[in-house]
Design a protein around this nucleic acid. Sequence first.
DNA 1: TTGCTAATATTCCTGAATGGAATACAAAAA
DNA 2: TTTTTGTATTCCATTCAGGAATATTAGCAA
Lengths: 303, 303
Amino acid sequence: MEYKNLPDIRGWAALRAVVEKGSVSAAAHVLNVGQPAVTKRLHTLEDSYGLTLVERGGGQVRLTAAGEKVYLLAVQTLDRQLTLRHELENMRRGKSTLHLDVTIAIGEHFLPRFLLQFSEMYPQYRIDSRMVYGRQSENNLASGMTDLALLERPPEHPDLMVQKWMEDELLLVCGLNHPLVEEDMIPITMLLDLSYVLREPGSAARLDMNEALERIGIHTLDIALEVGATDALIDVLIPGLHTSFLPRFAVLDHIKAGRLHHIKVSGFRIMRTLWIARHRNNIDHPVGDALIDIIRRDAKNKT
Amino acid sequence: MEYKNLPDIRGWAALRAVVEKGSVSAAAHVLNVGQPAVTKRLHTLEDSYGLTLVERGGGQVRLTAAGEKVYLLAVQTLDRQLTLRHELENMRRGKSTLHLDVTIAIGEHFLPRFLLQFSEMYPQYRIDSRMVYGRQSENNLASGMTDLALLERPPEHPDLMVQKWMEDELLLVCGLNHPLVEEDMIPITMLLDLSYVLREPGSAARLDMNEALERIGIHTLDIALEVGATDALIDVLIPGLHTSFLPRFAVLDHIKAGRLHHIKVSGFRIMRTLWIARHRNNIDHPVGDALIDIIRRDAKNKT
DNA sequence: TTGCTAATATTCCTGAATGGAATACAAAAA
DNA sequence: TTTTTGTATTCCATTCAGGAATATTAGCAA
């Protein structure tokens, strides 16, 4: 096993600082060491890989191709090491931490409430949550980086277990100035005449919508704009020019408050299920059980 | 920026060795250092995190919960560092490396041929390929860990660009002892009477199949077995009890050689496209272009 | 080109930390 | 208990990192 020729992490830290600060001196400053130390670190690192990693010229430092790769590893390793340190810090204080992944839409809508309730009911526990794009949470769960995930589509990975969280529906909504605000129900064919603002392709809502539309033979819609966040999307809807299919949980309050209008479509509904996912080997996580309890209770209250 | 309190990688290496060898002495042996060195490394590491990482007892070392987390990071970091070192080693010798992800089915069928042709035509380049499960390649591409991917389904991530590689079709096939081997074409309704051996849920072929069946109103099939590899699956088919939907590229040779029989289904075909995917920021990779050239040429020859 | 200036590399030295040898200690096994 | 195996500690020589001072280089202006 390799041991004696391992690089020193501080070499990576030096590289990262030099790249991000743009000069050796500036890097030395933020690292609280002298400039010669950083210079030497860089050289040691370059020697250990046998390649030039940064080039000086034009008053700038530039990464070589090899430098790019080392920099990528450096940043990832340092970030993960920092995360680990924080987590262990909490562990040392007796606070178990749950790593939670949620989709963007769920993160925008449910997460703040859950985290608040959770910290009140279980002050001894901690949650590290993050919003992840698309199916990334599957890999995080599979690799053990994440303990629990709240998802809009069931995961595909064979080692992951899901349990149902709640039923959801994608609702066709528009702003109050939209021509269709008077209509309570429209025929399916009219879906083709509308102008849409949607989440980006690949988002769970978009995929569910596409599949449902495919099923009734609609392959393309008139898409005016794509927005990467549900809340921002709603802001675009409110002026009233466009329509969108959005999760019921995200728009219900807006509909009740009269900021959005729900357009029913005759004979067409997009039902779906929201899921709680965990890894097979990680199903007895006390913090996870606590959170699931809150999530379930919340779902029951809403219905 | 953190610098002075960074852990020493050798601490991680020591932890890893101790865990994997089961004792401090054994670890010291494989690391080519004395036993006291390893003991001290472990203690330094534990001090730096402020937690006990391993517990001795019963003649065994056991990881604590905190130790598990550190061990996970240690293994990943050390592995990635080793990979990086190999890659830079090649770089130093002037061999550019392409990181290639392929799906299991593509990896089984195309990859050996591609790699062979590639190494003949471009000996100055290198390819690091791996078969990845499901959508993991998307994250690898997005994070810069992979340069190019060959996929059975288009990626969903907004920063990824795809180009069409070739058309494919999922064919319904069975072994020669299957009752249906006499039939050239069967009606759709008969799909429900067959017994299937399929790739696991989440595999691209399975998803494409499911979507196509959903479209014609079939929601469940009689699944006798799920297999994680296409070649192994074909071995299960050959005795003749079951049927499966498999990529044309994977079964064409078997059909021609008379080992499998293609059952046509009246009015039902599962067409799909195979894709080449890259990150937006990484579209001018010379090794990637070379490989794409080979892939394209191969596809042209086959048609 | 020639200065001038800012940034980087080198040299030298001191202090800190590493790893080995010897040894003390602890825990199973006999 | 004794033996044996494995782990921790102590001590010391060696190595290595970082600071101060200094040499060198690169960029810039005239």
